[in-house]
Measured scan of single mutants.
Amino acid sequence: GSPGIQSFLPPGWEMRIAPNGRPFFIDHNTKTTTWEDPRLK
């Protein structure tokens, strides 16, 4: 199987799917959430 997208996120980050189907990202380091992919910064 191919590695999940989770493995490509920075340490402490998690990806979830919102009720509307959009992915969002949780930064457990700062306890914040964002719509922006942290890998694109």
Score class of each variant (00 low, 15 high):
Pro23Met: 07
Pro19Glu: 10
Gln6Ile: 12
Pro19Trp: 09
Ile17Met: 11
Phe24Ala: 02
Ser7Thr: 14
Pro19Val: 09
Gly21Thr: 04
Met15Tyr: 05
Trp13Phe: 04
Ala18Met: 10
Trp13Glu: 01
Gly12Asn: 07
Trp35Val: 04
Lys31Trp: 10
Glu36Cys: 06
Arg22Lys: 13
Phe8Arg: 14
Trp35Lys: 03
Thr34Ser: 07
Phe8Lys: 15
Pro38Leu: 02
Asp27Val: 01
Phe24His: 05
Asp37Tyr: 08
Pro19Thr: 12
Pro11Thr: 10
Met15Arg: 05
Asn20Cys: 15
Asp27Glu: 04
Arg39Phe: 07
Ser2Gln: 14
Gly4Ile: 11
Phe24Arg: 02
Pro11Met: 12
Leu9Gly: 01
Met15Asp: 01
Phe8His: 15
Gly4Cys: 10
Gly21Ile: 00
His28Arg: 05
Lys31His: 14
Arg39Gln: 06
Ser7His: 14
Thr32Phe: 10
Pro23Leu: 08
Gly12Lys: 04
Ser2Lys: 12
Gly4Val: 12
Arg39Ser: 13
Gly4Pro: 14
Thr34Tyr: 05
Lys41Val: 15
Gly4Trp: 05
Pro38Ile: 04
Ala18Pro: 05
Thr30Gly: 08
Gly12Arg: 04
Gly12Phe: 05
Gly4Ser: 12
Ile26Lys: 02
Pro23Thr: 08
Phe8Asp: 15
Ile17Pro: 04
Phe24Lys: 03
Phe25His: 00
Leu40Tyr: 13
Thr30Ile: 02
Phe25Leu: 01
Trp13Gly: 00
Pro3Ala: 12
Trp35His: 06
Gly1Met: 12
Met15Val: 08
Pro10Ala: 04
Pro3Thr: 14
Trp13His: 00
Ala18Ile: 03
Lys41Phe: 15
Gly21Cys: 01
Trp35Glu: 05
Asn20Glu: 04
Pro11Asn: 09
Arg22Val: 11
Gly21Asn: 05
Gly12Pro: 04
Asp27His: 07
Pro19Lys: 10
Glu36Ser: 06
Pro19Gln: 10
Lys41Pro: 15
Leu40Trp: 12
Trp13Ser: 00
Lys41Gly: 15
Thr33Met: 13
Pro38Val: 03
Ser2Gly: 11
Lys41His: 15
Leu9Ile: 04
Glu36Ile: 08
Pro19Cys: 03
Ser2Phe: 13
His28Asp: 04
Asp37Met: 07
Gln6Trp: 02
Asn20Ser: 11
Pro38Tyr: 00
Leu9Trp: 04
Arg16Trp: 06
Pro23Ser: 06
Leu40Phe: 13
Pro10Met: 04
Arg16Asn: 07
Glu14Tyr: 03
Gly4Glu: 13
Pro19Tyr: 08
Arg39Lys: 04
Asp27Lys: 01
Phe25Asp: 00
Gln6Thr: 14
Ser7Asp: 15
Ile5Ala: 14
Ala18Thr: 10
Pro3Glu: 12
Lys41Met: 15
Met15Trp: 04
Glu36Pro: 00
Ser7Arg: 12
Gly12Glu: 03
Arg16His: 11
Asn29Gln: 08
Ile5Asn: 13
Pro38Lys: 01
Thr30Glu: 06
Asp37Ser: 04
Ser7Pro: 15
Phe25Lys: 00
His28Leu: 08
Pro11Cys: 07
Arg22Ser: 09
Asp27Met: 02
Asp37Pro: 15
His28Asn: 10
Trp13Ile: 02
Gly1Val: 12
Lys31Phe: 09
Trp35Gln: 04
Arg22Ile: 11
Ala18Ser: 11
Ile17Trp: 14
Ile26Pro: 00
Leu9Thr: 01
Leu40Asn: 15
Pro38Met: 03
Pro11Val: 10
Phe24Leu: 11
Asn29Val: 09
Ile5Asp: 14
Pro3Gln: 12
Pro23Gln: 07
Gly12Gln: 04
Ser2Pro: 13
Pro11Trp: 08
Pro23Arg: 06
Gln6His: 13
Leu40Ala: 14
Ile17Val: 10
Ser2Met: 13
Glu14His: 03
Pro19Arg: 13
Ser2Tyr: 11
Ile5Thr: 14
Ile17Ala: 05
Gly1Gln: 13
Pro3Gly: 12
Trp35Pro: 02
Arg16Thr: 08
Gly1Ala: 14
Asn29Leu: 08
Phe24Met: 10
Glu36Asp: 11
Pro38Gln: 02
Thr34Gln: 08
Thr33His: 09
His28Gly: 05
Met15Ser: 04
Thr32Tyr: 09
Asp37Cys: 08
Pro23His: 09
Glu36Met: 06
Thr34Phe: 04
Arg22Phe: 09
Leu40Lys: 13
Gln6Gly: 13
Ala18Tyr: 06
Gly4Tyr: 07
Asp27Arg: 01
Gly4Lys: 05
Gly1Asn: 13
Gly4Ala: 14
Arg22Met: 12
His28Ile: 07
Phe24Asn: 02
Thr30Trp: 03
His28Lys: 06
Gly12Thr: 01
Ile26Asn: 01
Leu9Tyr: 03
Asp27Gly: 00
Glu14Asn: 01
Arg22His: 08
Ser7Met: 10
Thr32Asn: 07
Arg39Leu: 06
Gln6Leu: 07
Trp13Tyr: 03
Phe25Trp: 08
Phe24Ile: 11
Thr30Gln: 05
Thr33Phe: 12
Lys31Met: 13
Met15Lys: 05
Glu14Leu: 01
Phe24Trp: 11
Glu36Leu: 09
Pro3His: 12
Trp35Ile: 05
Ile26Val: 09
Lys31Cys: 14
Gln6Tyr: 03
Ser2Leu: 13
Gln6Met: 07
Trp13Lys: 00
Lys41Leu: 15
Asp37Leu: 05
Phe25Val: 00
Pro23Glu: 07
Arg39Val: 06
Pro3Leu: 12
Gly12Met: 04
Pro19Ser: 13
Asn29Gly: 07
Lys31Ile: 06
Thr30Ala: 07
Gly21Pro: 04
Ile5Leu: 14
Gly4Thr: 13
Arg39Ile: 06
Asp27Ile: 01
Thr34His: 08
Met15Gln: 08
Ile26Leu: 07
